[in-house]
Structures are given as C-alpha cells and as structure tokens.
Nucleic acid binder design. Structure first.
Lengths: 132, 132
DNA sequence: TTTGATGCAAATGTTTTGCATGCAA
DNA sequence: TTGCATGCAAAACATTTGCATCAAA
C-alpha cells in the first residue's frame, strides 16, 4: 500500500465524521464539506471515505437503503434503522456473539462473524407521525 | 393494488427461482430465463422480481455486495455469505429473536425486527483455495 | 375490448475512474 | 523533484421508467 499524504480535504472529512452522531452517506458528507471547501468534488469524497475505510479508521455500513453510510465509531456496536424516518442510530447493548455459535452448530463451513441491523420505530417516530 | 395477469415470463422466473438453491441476482435470473425466452428484457425481469417480492411470494436479500439477491424460500431462516467465493447459503438454525429483546433493553424506540447475515468460509472454501 | 405485461431505450442514482494539474514531503 | 491528491468529466453499474405494442381476460 502506498504512503498516505496529508490533505486538508481528507482532514475535513475526518473531522466532520468525528463530530457527527449521524451516519452520513457520501452525498451528505459532500454537502457538509462543501461549506468549508466549496470546490471539493464528489469523487474526492468517495476516494477519501474508501481510503479511511480501508485503513480501518472508519466503518462502512450497508444498511440496504441503496447507499453506503459511514461511521467514525469503529468500536464494536450495533445499529438501528428507523422504518419511519430512515435514521441510523447506535444501539448500546450487550454482545450477541453467541449467535455465531448457534449459526455454526449445524453448518459445515466456518462462521467468522455476522452483520446485524435492527429496525423499528425510533423514539421520535414512535409517538405520532414520522418526520422525514 | 391492480390485478395480476398471467404471463409466461413471470411464470418462468417463478419456476427458475423455485428450482434453484442459489440466491440469484436479477442479472443471473435474466441470463437463465434468456435460455427459454431469448427476447425477455432485463426490465421485465426487474419488474417481475419486484412484483413477486411485493406480494411476498419471494424475498429480496440485501447482502451488501452491490446488488439485490432473490430467494424463493420465504420461510423464516438466516443466510451465510462466503468471504471466499461470495456464495449465499441458507443456514439451518434455531431462532435468535431474543436478540431483539437485548437490543431493545437500553433503547427508547421500538425494535420490530432484525436483519442478520453471517459470514465466513463455506465448506468448499474452508479447505484449500477459494473458487470464485 | 380493456387493461395489465412486454421489449426497448432512455433516464436515474450511486460509485468509480482516467487524466491533467496541484500540493505535500 | 517525486508521487500522492485533487477537480472535473466521463464511465461503469444496478435499477427504474416512459412508451408503443402485445396478449390475457
């Protein structure tokens, strides 16, 4: 792998991600960074998000809604997707790694891990109308 | 919802899906059906797959590999994605719905369900080289 | 006949890439 | 200087859609 060279665009992306609790898509990151660097291109945003994901500095989330989301928090945790507003939220919960064992008990291959998304109504959408 | 009218294209897609144990993408279905109806179009394949998914006759799987996969088996079960060859396999395993309770215990919203994919090495890729 | 289904092509949305130029080391 | 990073535009994919025509009912 080639050496990473400093760039203020990448730094801005890193900062933005580290300060938001949302789980933005590349498009969302692009619009946010444009307020600081109006000339940044979508391609640069994608290139840097992939770079940061490759080095493990951020995580890529395939929520199944058509576009990837990005998460600065790389600690082991789970996500919740609201079926009302589409928001992606972090879940504080105990480890459920035991499901790997359950999955492997009648399986001939090797279970290395799992990817789980919970869905339902977030606190906002729970009571009353959804707010997209 | 409008009435569904018979079409041999849709019937062929249904048959193909019911006879395969793979979890094909629209593209794969398209190539398979073309052997029977060489003039079928990709658009028709997509339209029918979505139609069948909407009526609940088949399931759509977002495996996170860039394209949707389709599954004729709509019974409650889990899937395994091989990190070696990319194959999607069915897993015979006990229910793990208890993870919904775990996820909800420190969450203010409502957990309605979850989507879980297990990954690792399938029986083929487990021993020796992967075979993509 | 009426209306949903098809084939085709164009359009859409997301992500990647080629290339000349810019900038960090 | 050297080589990665950028901006821009074009390309690459997966999927959807408009429309004239076709075929079930």
């Amino acid at each position: 792998m080639a050496e990473l060279k400093y760039s203020r665009q990448r730094e801005a992306i890193r900062n933005y991600l580290s300060e938001t609790k949302e789980h933005p898509t590349a498009e969302t990151v692009y619009h946010a960074i444009r307020k600081i660097y109006p000339n940044i291109s979508l391609g640069t945003v994608y290139r840097n998000l992939n770079l940061l994901a490759d080095t493990g500095e951020i995580n890529k989330l395939s929520c199944g809604d058509g576009s990837e989301h990005f998460d600065y928090d790389t600690s082991r945790h789970y996500h919740f997707i609201c079926t009302g507003c589409g928001r992606v939220l972090d879940l504080k919960m105990a480890s459920i790694d035991s499901i790997n064992t359950i999955a492997g008990s009648h399986f001939d291959g090797t279970i290395e891990g799992h990817s789980t998304y919970f869905y339902g109504k977030c606190p906002c959408c729970k009571s009353g109308s959804s707010n997209l």
